[in-house]
Amino acid sequence: MSSIIKLEIQKKSFDKKGFSILHDFELEVQPGEKLSIIGESGVGKTSLLNIIGLLDTRYQGSYQLFDSPVQELSRNKLAEWRNQKIGFVLQESALIDSLTIEDNIKLPLMYANIEKDASAQEHFKRIVNKIGIESILKKKPLECSGGQRSRAVFARAVIMNPQIILSDEPTASLDPENKERIIDLLFEMNEEFNTTVITVTHDLDVANRHERIIKLKRSE
């Protein structure tokens, strides 16, 4: 089976002083794998997700995604893959305050010009019902609680039924009931669509429910 992700990072540098992380890091992921990433703050967990998700290309190394060398992809192709093939549940994934929760969730569908497709509408209904946000769809983000906004960000991440879902602390602001809803939906998508799930978390209960755990350590 061909790997969906094959990543080799010599290092990721941040400033002229030479601060760097992810020294000699290698990662290979198979399609449909459930992988969690743990480690103390500052070791590069979120940076790693940004690299995997094509948000950050400023690192030394090589990356093959979907059997294609990332360094050879055009800017348009990178944007297309970020919208259609990769779902992001990242801490900085802000909702647009001027749009309703429903329109925020449907943004990827609009970018792909499929928001009116029957299958897309059905998938939208399934997601919002599963994670319990039907009552806030017509509200604006600032009218919602932090937990409600977190669930809306999650819904937007999975609305395109992506091949890879990248989650950065997806349950951090949720109560136990809604935490279970999010994890259940993640793993249902993995089971039904062979979606690859990569989750950064400090919650060892969440981490242990994945098939494989990678612990990042601080560089010497």
Rank of each mutant, 00 (worst) to 15 (best):
D184N: 07
Q84C: 03
K139S: 01
I21Y: 12
L142S: 05
L137S: 01
S68K: 15
Q71F: 07
Q84H: 14
Y111Q: 08
L174E: 06
L35D: 11
D97V: 07
I164A: 07
E177L: 10
K12G: 00
L55G: 00
F193S: 06
G61Y: 09
V153G: 06
C144W: 10
F187D: 02
I213Y: 09
A157E: 11
L99Q: 07
M189T: 01
Q64E: 10
S219V: 10
F14Q: 04
Y59S: 02
Q60P: 00
S145K: 11
A152I: 08
E177N: 08
E122S: 04
R156D: 01
R156F: 09
L7R: 14
E26K: 15
L107V: 05
N178P: 01
M1S: 11
I183R: 08
K116Q: 15
T46D: 06
L95V: 03
A172D: 03
G53M: 14
D97C: 10
Y59P: 00
D168A: 10
S98G: 00
M160F: 10
I101V: 10
S13L: 08
T100G: 02
I5L: 11
I182V: 14
L73W: 15
K139W: 07
L137Y: 13
D97Q: 14
N208H: 15
K125G: 00
L95K: 10
K140E: 00
E192C: 02
I51A: 07
K12A: 02
S47F: 06
E180G: 01
E192H: 09
A155D: 05
T196P: 03
R126P: 00
D168F: 11
R58V: 00
K16Q: 07
I182P: 03
I86P: 06
K85S: 02
K139G: 01
R209V: 04
M1P: 08
A172R: 11
S47D: 03
L204H: 12
Q71N: 06
F124H: 12
V89T: 02
E72I: 10
I136D: 04
M1D: 14
S62H: 14
A152M: 12
K11S: 03
P69A: 09
S41E: 09
K130G: 01
I101H: 06
Q148S: 05
P162M: 04
L35E: 08
G146W: 14
G132M: 04
K215S: 06
K77F: 13
K45P: 05
R126H: 09
E115W: 15
R75P: 01
K45W: 13
E220T: 06
L185C: 01
L90G: 00
I131E: 04
L49R: 13
L54G: 04
S98C: 05
T195Y: 13
R156H: 05
S145Q: 08
A155L: 12
Q84L: 13
F14I: 04
E26W: 13
S13Q: 10
P162H: 12
I101T: 04
N208G: 15
D175V: 07
